[in-house]
Amino acid sequence: MRDVMIDLETLSTRPDAMIRSIGAVAFGPDGLGAELSIVIDPAGAVGHIDPETVAWWLGQSGVARHVLSAAYPGERVPLAHALQRFCWFLNDLNVPPAKVRVWGHGSSFDLPIIESAFRACGHPIPWNHSAARDTRTILELAEVKIATPEAAKHDALGDARAQALAVIEAARILGSHRLWPEAAV
């Protein structure tokens, strides 16, 4: 699988937003594959915090806010370590870096933010500049809506899964051979 859906939960909507969690899932015409979920330690985070975004988070469900709260019991890692883990995840897909395609829900959110984080931490961006894909475009063309279970809303991995499944459905409607010509036999 060479396609990877990335979803971020952040404390701003700017390209230099502080990332609080990263979710990623590999996917292809046969469904979902390897997954990654990382929560960022706020003490090891960098980036912009927007008071309006923080206020928006306060209005979300307790489940959505749980990962962002100080009471979160799971592992949290500094941003630089999270980005290294993300690179390992991509490497474990056994796809040449030039062949990986990364997807975000909208061309101006997830991918620009994570690319900014890679730069801020001194890491090279682990995909080719032409690898970026936008879910909103393909979903609009196919008239597909994302079906995120309520418990998974605003959870980076849950959102990444739902978005990837929607792209798979959109590709099926539009002719999956267009997105995955290697799968057409």
Rank of each mutant, 00 (worst) to 15 (best):
G31Q: 14
L32I: 09
L32V: 01
G33W: 09
G33C: 10
A34S: 15
E35K: 15
E35G: 05
L36R: 09
L36C: 06
I38M: 10
I38F: 04
P42L: 14
P42G: 10
A43R: 12
A45D: 02
A45W: 09
I49L: 02
E52W: 06
T53S: 14
T53D: 04
V54I: 11
V54K: 11
W57V: 07
Q60F: 09
A64E: 09
A64Y: 07
A70L: 06
P73I: 01
R76L: 01
V77E: 13
V77G: 09
P78E: 11
P78I: 02
L79W: 10
H81C: 12
L83H: 12
Q84A: 14
R85S: 13
R85H: 10
F86G: 00
F86E: 04
C87H: 05
C87K: 14
L90T: 00
N91V: 01
D92F: 00
L93W: 06
N94W: 02
N94M: 03
V95D: 06
V95K: 07
V102Q: 11
V102L: 15
W103N: 04
G104F: 08
H105W: 03
H105R: 13
G106K: 07
S107N: 12
S107I: 13
S107R: 15
S108W: 04
S108Y: 02
S108C: 03
D110A: 15
L111S: 03
L111I: 15
P112F: 05
P112G: 00
E115T: 06
S116P: 01
A117M: 05
